[in-house]
Design a protein around this nucleic acid. Structure first.
Lengths: 175, 175
DNA sequence: CGACACATGTAACACGTTACATGATTTG
DNA sequence: CAAATCATGTAACGTGTTACATGTGTCG
């Protein structure tokens, strides 16, 4: 629902045409979620189908979209309700749990591979955060904050898994 | 790909029929990801279509599935490659960033609503973790670890957002 | 002129999800 | 006997994603 509702949010603040929504969405996410141009229009079609947005000019060239009253309600609902916990569907968690459940022989390697990758990402995010200007690139900085905190949590979880499974990490990739 | 690959993982450790896969998957995830029965068979059809699994008995009653050589490769690929970072698509992150980008007036409320909800979850997870037996319910305990670490990271991020946006949290829902 | 941003759209697909229909077997 | 569990499947749908086709305007 992220793209859908994001479009709703922009259109509630001001009408826009498809391409504008694309730019807005990508800027909002600090460029971390690039959209395929086509996706903009499939998403708009679905919003229109559900009566949440309407097109202003029927012209072929630049259709201007605006939110309906129903759309405003849907947006308010989005903002009002806290996002549900989707961690139970997280691919990494599932992968590790399934590996445990099947008695996967390379358990230790799976955990270490992931930990290395996540720590490398962590370094890269941290580097980028130092280079970023919080005033000029607020979305990107907020995104980096999220990315970093998530990655840290992931590393901690992987270490916890190693402990609980009584696996000895090599420690070689710790820094 | 989680369900798909989880099925592959079980079938690589031993052949099974559809219902068995369902039970296995739900036990592996500590019951945190319940499957609709139908989903098992749609997933198996897709795996079969892609040549990753095959059905043993053509009987109507209890078809036994096993993994193919190609399926074993696919599984190895899954285990070998670290899971990509999907945090950039996280609904909460997007929601907050979009709210910031549109100058949403109720920014503070959105953040606080979410923080309250997440902290409540956190409490509930912590309570359940205390009640759980790590030896008898390892999957569920590992899942709870993940849930807790994620929730903690989420709370920290929300607080960081408040700071960066120079919003004063009420602090009333801190405990 | 050529590259790039602007601008719109269709068709097809991926995975996950639900509702629904059906029946056998086990257990209280 | 009734309820729960075991067991299989289909049809339809949701969001997100890609590949593809098409064309205008602008700037170096």
């Amino acid at each position: 629902m992220s793209i859908r509702n994001s479009f709703l949010a922009l259109l509630a603040s001001q009408p826009a045409h498809g391409y504008g929504l694309k730019s807005f969405f990508e800027e909002s996410t600090g460029g971390a979620w690039p959209l395929n141009a086509g996706q903009v229009y499939t998403t708009l079609s679905r919003l229109e189908r559900d009566g949440l947005v309407e097109a202003e000019g029927d012209s072929d060239d630049r259709r201007s979209w605006h939110v309906t009253e129903k759309g405003r309600h849907a947006l308010a609902d989005w903002y009002d309700a806290p996002v549900e916990d989707r961690s139970t569907r997280d691919e990494l968690v599932i992968k590790v749990l399934v590996a445990v459940a099947t008695g996967e022989s390379n358990m230790a390697r799976v955990l270490q591979t992931q930990r290395s990758a996540t720590m490398q990402r962590l370094q890269e995010y941290t580097r980028q955060k130092m280079e970023a200007d919080p005033r000029a690139e607020l979305p990107w900085v907020l995104m980096l904050d999220a990315l970093i905190l998530r990655a840290e949590a992931e590393v901690r979880w992987l270490e916890l898994c190693e402990q609980r499974l009584e696996l000895q990490g090599t420690g070689g990739d710790r820094c």
